[in-house]
């Protein structure tokens, strides 16, 4: 089950990178000075328009071709993070936009600087509002890690394939087990995060829940 550990590592690390990057870009897009919003917008358009597998190949083989050698695992994290960031920007942005502008004005009239207003007033509200979108994204990244097989990362899926190559007759059985593992994880994450959502719920602070 070494593949499973790799899958989890991939998911967590790329989620971490992507969330950080996306939160900064989301604030950049909503509150930054030009050209920050423009850069964020272009970034979003490009990485939303290219399949993950193409991003993987560009990062892994492309960087190698121009002389930067990185291992497949790092390439997978970079690829997943770049891709997911483009989607997460939207999650954080709609959360930011649903916070009334008056909140920032009130913070400023207390004497807070713009950065303080973002840090103490906007950020905490935004993070809570983003939980549903964020948990959705989490499960997507988990599922997308399977695509890292394309550049040879030995994660859950590839591990499964090794076994199949050795014993082709049990392919179906092995693959069903792999599917079950993913399913359990996705299910657990969804449950766990909706618990989190209820736990940190503040009355009157909610976004119309999608789905």
């Amino acid at each position: 089950m070494r593949g499973l550990a790799v899958t989890i590592e991939l998911t967590l690390l790329s989620m971490l990178c992507a969330s950080t990057l996306a939160i900064m870009m989301a604030f950049g897009r909503s509150y930054g000075k030009q050209p920050l919003p423009f850069i964020a917008l272009i970034y979003e358009k490009i990485f939303r328009g290219i399949p993950l597998i193409v991003i993987f190949i560009l990062v892994y083989f492309g960087l190698a071709q121009i002389g930067i050698l990185i291992d497949a695992f790092s390439a997978a994290i970079i690829g997943l993070a770049l891709h997911s960031t483009a989607y997460q920007i939207q999650i954080y942005r709609s959360a930011i936009n649903s916070i009334p502008e008056g909140q920032v004005i009130a913070a400023q009239s207390l004497g807070m600087s713009k950065l303080q207003a973002i840090r103490y007033i906007l950020l905490p509200q935004m993070l809570r509002l983003s939980i549903p979108g964020w948990s959705n994204e989490f499960t997507i990244i988990l599922k997308d890690t399977s695509i890292a097989i394309a550049i040879g990362v030995v994660e859950l899926m590839r591990q499964g394939r090794y076994v199949i190559v050795r014993e082709p007759s049990v392919a179906l059985y092995i693959l069903l087990v792999v599917a079950l593992i993913y399913f359990i994880f996705v299910f657990t994450i969804n449950r766990g995060l909706s618990y989190l959502e209820k736990r940190y719920h503040i009355s009157g602070l909610e976004i119309t829940k999608a789905r």
Partner: peptide, 27 residues
């Protein structure tokens, strides 16, 4: 300077993620 000028808004603009107490203490 804005610390010396209090402002009370028509639509309150309370910080929605904070309790009444924290709304007052955060500044």
């Amino acid at each position: 300077i804005r610390q010396k000028i209090g402002f009370v808004f028509q639509d309150f603009n309370l910080f929605n993620h904070l309790t009444a107490l924290r709304n007052v203490s955060i500044g």
